[in-house]
């Protein structure tokens, strides 16, 4: 058990000592992954709802596509975004490479299919339940999609959390498009990878414990908020 004692102590010392660099890294992780999740929700949820209630050619193909893209390899997304944002790439003129913005873009691409696929499932379930009712009220499919999205908003928070979990945990994409620059694009996962490279396994594991704790805390807050919102607005 000795392997786990030292990291636990180190983790506690880092947190108790209110290490400023660690705080910066944690905040950047949260900022990047929350922004990416938000973008993914704004894009992915309407797509998911339309896939659930819509009737158009290629719909089934799109459903399979989005389900499949839930397994997008982060390193491939990172590489694609890198080539897009590189100075020699089509969007190179904006100089976005190696910035938090580049990391947000990459993670948003990674998370959007997850949010869309999970949203489709939630909306499809309530669509089969309320279909006749909505039809009898004369709601168009677009209108029905919006209504069901709103109706399922509490269940959809799980889709958002799943997306957020994927974003904050991945290292492949942010490493490539962020470059792991100290103080600029260094986030929790890239720091852990770096400390592992240096052979400082106890510190790497300590940071891992902190990351897991942060993710748990976010989920606890989201759960509490959901309960509160359901009581007030539900």
């Amino acid at each position: 058990m000795h392997e786990f004692n030292e990291p636990l102590i180190t983790a506690w010392q880092l947190v108790a000592g209110a290490d400023a660099r660690l705080a910066g890294i944690v905040l950047l992780s949260l900022r990047v992954s929350l922004a990416a999740t938000l973008i993914a929700c704004v894009i992915g949820m309407p797509i998911g709802a339309l896939l659930a209630v819509g009737r158009f050619p290629g719909r089934r193909t799109l459903i399979v596509l989005f389900n499949g893209l839930m397994g997008l390899p982060p390193v491939v997304v990172g590489l694609l975004v890198y080539l897009l944002l590189s100075r020699a790439g089509p969007l190179g003129q904006f100089g976005l490479l190696f910035s938090p913005e580049a990391m947000i873009i990459a993670q948003a691409i990674l998370v959007t299919p997850i949010v869309a696929a999970l949203t489709r499932q939630v909306v499809a379930d309530s669509w089969s339940e309320y279909r006749e009712q909505l039809r009898s009220l004369g709601a168009s499919r677009g209108r029905a999609a919006a209504t069901l999205l709103w109706d399922g908003r509490f269940s959809l928070s799980t889709a958002a959390l799943a997306g957020f979990g994927r974003a904050i945990a991945e290292v492949g994409a942010v490493m490539i498009v962020g470059g792991n620059i100290d103080g600029v694009t260094r986030v929790m996962t890239t720091t852990i990878a770096l400390e592992t490279s240096k052979g400082d396994l106890p510190l790497a594991l300590a940071l891992g414990f902190i990351l897991i704790t942060v993710v748990l805390a976010i989920n606890a807050v989201a759960y509490a908020l959901r309960g509160w919102a359901e009581r007030h607005w539900g």
Binding site: R31, L34, A35, L38, I39, V42, I104
Partner: peptide, 12 residues
Amino acid sequence: ALAACGLLAAAA
């Protein structure tokens, strides 16, 4: 509230 979050994230 959602829009406000978005603006915050963008402006940070």
